Deep mutational scan, measured.
Amino acid sequence: SYYEILDVPRSASADDIKKAYRRKALQWHPDKNPDNKEFAEKKFKEVAEAYEVLSDKHKREIYDR
Results as ranks from 00 to 15, higher is better:
residue 5 I to L: 09
residue 53 V to M: 05
residue 47 V to E: 01
residue 42 K to D: 06
residue 55 S to N: 08
residue 25 A to T: 12
residue 6 L to I: 04
residue 57 K to C: 09
residue 17 I to M: 04
residue 62 I to W: 11
residue 32 K to C: 14
residue 60 R to T: 02
residue 31 D to G: 08
residue 44 F to T: 07
residue 32 K to N: 15
residue 5 I to C: 08
residue 22 R to D: 15
residue 59 K to Q: 10
residue 7 D to S: 12
residue 36 N to I: 09
residue 9 P to I: 05
residue 23 R to L: 15
residue 48 A to F: 14
residue 35 D to I: 10
residue 8 V to Q: 03
residue 4 E to N: 09
residue 47 V to N: 02
residue 6 L to R: 00
residue 47 V to W: 03
residue 36 N to G: 07
residue 5 I to W: 09
residue 36 N to C: 14
residue 62 I to Y: 12
residue 3 Y to G: 00
residue 29 H to Q: 10
residue 38 E to P: 09
residue 35 D to S: 12
residue 10 R to N: 08
residue 57 K to R: 11
residue 31 D to T: 11
residue 29 H to W: 07
residue 20 A to T: 02
residue 19 K to V: 13
residue 30 P to K: 06
residue 27 Q to H: 09
residue 30 P to C: 05
residue 11 S to V: 06
residue 9 P to M: 07
residue 22 R to H: 14
residue 14 A to P: 09
residue 54 L to P: 00
residue 14 A to D: 14
residue 38 E to W: 08
residue 33 N to Q: 05
residue 18 K to C: 12
residue 37 K to Q: 12
residue 37 K to Y: 11
residue 61 E to H: 07
residue 29 H to S: 13
residue 34 P to S: 11
residue 12 A to G: 05
residue 41 E to Y: 09
residue 10 R to E: 06
residue 40 A to C: 08
residue 56 D to T: 04
residue 1 S to F: 08
residue 38 E to C: 08
residue 13 S to H: 06
residue 58 H to D: 14
residue 53 V to E: 03
residue 30 P to Y: 05
residue 60 R to K: 12
residue 55 S to M: 05
residue 48 A to I: 15
residue 14 A to Q: 12
residue 15 D to H: 11
residue 8 V to G: 02
residue 1 S to W: 10
residue 9 P to F: 06
residue 15 D to M: 14
residue 63 Y to M: 01
residue 23 R to Y: 13
residue 49 E to M: 14
residue 41 E to V: 11
residue 36 N to R: 12
residue 55 S to T: 05
residue 11 S to N: 14
residue 32 K to F: 14
residue 23 R to D: 14
residue 47 V to T: 04
residue 63 Y to W: 03
residue 9 P to W: 05
residue 62 I to T: 07
residue 14 A to I: 13
residue 23 R to M: 11
residue 17 I to S: 00
residue 43 K to C: 09
residue 62 I to V: 12
residue 26 L to P: 03
residue 12 A to I: 01
residue 18 K to S: 12
residue 45 K to N: 14
residue 37 K to T: 10
residue 53 V to C: 10
residue 22 R to I: 15
residue 15 D to I: 07
residue 47 V to S: 04
residue 10 R to K: 14
residue 16 D to C: 10
residue 56 D to I: 03
residue 2 Y to I: 03
residue 45 K to G: 07
residue 63 Y to H: 03
residue 19 K to S: 09
residue 60 R to P: 01
residue 55 S to K: 09
residue 61 E to K: 07
residue 2 Y to H: 06
residue 32 K to S: 14
residue 16 D to P: 01
residue 41 E to N: 10
residue 23 R to Q: 13
residue 44 F to A: 09
residue 15 D to F: 10
residue 63 Y to T: 02
residue 29 H to V: 05
residue 9 P to N: 07
residue 21 Y to P: 00
residue 56 D to H: 05
residue 20 A to R: 01
residue 15 D to N: 13
residue 14 A to L: 13
residue 65 R to Q: 15
residue 8 V to M: 04
residue 14 A to H: 12
residue 40 A to D: 04
residue 21 Y to N: 02
residue 18 K to A: 14
residue 47 V to H: 01
residue 60 R to F: 02
residue 18 K to V: 14
residue 52 E to A: 15
residue 5 I to E: 04
residue 25 A to H: 11
residue 36 N to F: 08
residue 45 K to H: 09
residue 57 K to D: 15
residue 17 I to C: 02
residue 24 K to W: 07
residue 46 E to H: 06
residue 15 D to R: 07
residue 55 S to L: 04
residue 43 K to H: 07
residue 34 P to R: 12
residue 65 R to V: 09
residue 13 S to Y: 04
residue 45 K to V: 07
residue 34 P to A: 10
residue 38 E to G: 08
residue 29 H to A: 13
residue 11 S to T: 14
residue 11 S to C: 15
residue 42 K to A: 11
residue 57 K to I: 12
residue 23 R to V: 15
residue 46 E to P: 02
residue 28 W to Y: 15
residue 62 I to Q: 13
residue 50 A to L: 01
residue 7 D to F: 04
residue 6 L to P: 00
residue 44 F to C: 07
residue 44 F to N: 04
residue 22 R to M: 15
residue 59 K to L: 12
residue 12 A to W: 01
residue 62 I to K: 09
residue 65 R to D: 05
residue 35 D to F: 15
residue 52 E to R: 10
residue 36 N to D: 08
residue 3 Y to R: 00
residue 23 R to E: 14
residue 38 E to M: 10
residue 6 L to E: 00
residue 16 D to A: 09
residue 40 A to N: 05
residue 43 K to P: 02
residue 37 K to P: 09
residue 52 E to C: 11
residue 65 R to C: 12
residue 35 D to Y: 10
residue 2 Y to V: 03
residue 36 N to M: 10
residue 55 S to Q: 06
residue 29 H to L: 11
residue 19 K to N: 12
residue 41 E to H: 10
residue 4 E to S: 11
residue 35 D to Q: 11
residue 2 Y to L: 10
residue 12 A to P: 03
residue 28 W to G: 02
residue 65 R to M: 15
residue 15 D to L: 13
residue 29 H to T: 10
